[in-house]
Design a protein around this nucleic acid. Structure first.
Length: 417
RNA sequence: GUGAACGUAGCUCAGUUUGGCAGAGCGCUGGGUUGUGGCCCCAGUGGUCGCGGGUUCAAAUCCCGCCGUUCACCCCA
């Protein structure tokens, strides 16, 4: 038997309902805030991610599925959604006519990591991006949409954490302060952390190594170093959150693993997912459009892991069968009724029923067994009665049976249901 | 990439400590009962014990390698 590569999986029919429910809810919420869906390619030039996501990030250093195509071009399966969206924004010159630009996406992402619960090599993200608004009301809107979405899925036990990483002007000052601070502990740092210190000292803040937890406790906080404008931006965001009663926690140690973030970063976490506690992550990226060679247009967004969401939802009871169409099982006993069966099937489907056409070679008993297993509401017996233009119908729940005239069959069925 | 646990029927798992005929429940198939399905009763079906190698008279069981899953680290969604 040929198996499956590590970290990828089938989403089988029995589990697809929850996916559809999540996607439907997402579309409803996002579109009610006037976001439109965008579908970008699953692979892009590798450069898009090295430049955008960042050379110092773990994603780029060790997690990308990168390969050469037949002409020797370096391509990469997208590890996250934002770079593709921003690329599309620039390539299609949206900034000339259509900002702010509000889009969302749903689709697979790929990262070469050791799989764990809620973490796979092919996983699915649902993300929202907003380009062209500098005002903190945009930061608020993005967080609000994420919270609203989770609320609509009946998720409790979630916490919003926010932080500000400053802008191009003040970030270097903070970066310097962090380097100076950690440099004094240099002899205590692990090899990886020493390297981080040089390349991206912000990343040291979410290290979970025992020594680091202690050291970083007293590390300088970004909020003390950011400039006046960034301070004001952050204050305004907090104010919006207060007004709309979205509870949040300021986490000065919250940094994110992508290089392009500026100012606001946020995460929505839960305590019931073990180490994979981040369910939503996002932030502002005011320089990314420029990094890709576009005009100076600010942007921000969030992404959410669908597999993790499903893991969370599996802990609460959800009835997803409510909006299903009612199932009618056609038990074919008389083999010479093809015309009638085809005609009846079409009529039932037109009336928004689901139908299951039973295997005509089965005995009556098996038809009922299968109909019961499929949770059919009604079984229609197509047997010798058809010669008298009559047909027998059984309601499975009550066992009630009726003989109906074929001419007003469909309307009689509605009465039985 | 590091450390640990695990992998037995379609599913959930027992059996591994101390090597000795491959097991249970659910499901599935057939039968009985029921007005013809569900409930109940009876019977049957189902396995390369993850894969490969080694030790042994004998391996699901002990040893080694590989693959996969899970948990933690790393990191992130």
């Amino acid at each position: 038997m040929i198996g499956l590569p590590r970290g990828v999986q089938d989403i089988m029919p029995s589990e697809v309902k929850i996916w559809q429910f999540i996607e439907k809810t997402a579309r409803e919420i996002f579109e009610s805030y006037n976001y439109q869906e965008i579908r970008t390619p699953i692979f892009e030039f590798t450069e898009l991610f090295t430049k955008g996501t960042g050379e110092t990030t773990d994603i780029v250093i060790k997690e990308m599925y990168t390969f050469l195509d037949k002409k020797g071009r370096s391509l990469t399966l997208r590890p996250e959604g934002t770079p593709g969206v921003v690329r599309a924004f620039i390539m299609n010159k949206i900034y000339n006519l259509n900002i702010p630009w509000k889009v969302y996406y749903i689709g697979p992402m790929f990262r070469y990591e050791r799989p764990q619960a809620g973490r796979y090599r092919q996983f699915h993200q649902l993300g929202v991006e907003l380009l062209g608004i500098k005002d903190p009301i945009a930061d608020f809107e993005i967080i609000k949409i994420a919270v609203e979405f989770l609320k609509n899925l009946n998720l409790a036990n979630i916490e919003v954490e926010i932080n500000s990483l400053g802008c191009q002007k003040c970030r270097p000052i903070y970066r310097k302060a962090l380097m100076d601070y950690f440099a004094s502990f240099k002899h205590e740092l692990s090899e990886i952390d020493k390297e981080r210190l040089e390349r991206n000292p912000l990343r040291l803040l979410d290290s979970k190594e025992e020594k680091m937890i202690e050291i970083k406790e007293k590390a300088p906080s970004a909020l003390d170093y950011i400039c006046g404008e960034c301070q004001e931006h952050f204050e305004k965001l907090k104010n919006y959150l207060n007004i709309s009663n979205i509870p949040y926690k300021i986490n000065p140690k919250l940094v994110r693993g992508l290089d392009y973030y500026t100012r606001t970063v946020f995460e929505i976490t839960t305590d019931i997912l073990g180490a994979q506690n981040a369910i939503v992550g996002g932030g502002r990226y005011d320089n990314l459009v420029e990094i890709y060679g576009g005009p100076p247009i600010p942007g921000l967004g969030f992404a959410l892991g669908i597999e993790r969401l499903i893991l969370l939802l599996s802990k609460i009871d959800l009835d997803l069968s409510l909006d299903e169409k009612k199932l009618i099982y056609l038990a074919i006993i008389d083999q010479n009724s093809n015309n009638f069966i085809i005609d009846l099937s079409e009529k039932l489907i037109e009336k928004k029923y689901r139908i299951e056409i039973g295997d005509p070679s089965l005995p009556l008993k098996n038809h009922l067994k299968i109909a019961n297993r499929l949770k059919a509401e009604l079984v229609i017996f197509i047997d010798s009665l058809i010669k008298e233009e009559k047909i027998k119908v059984k309601k499975l729940k009550t066992g009630e049976e009726r003989i109906l005239n074929i001419y007003n069959l469909v309307s009689e069925l509605e009465i039985m249901l």
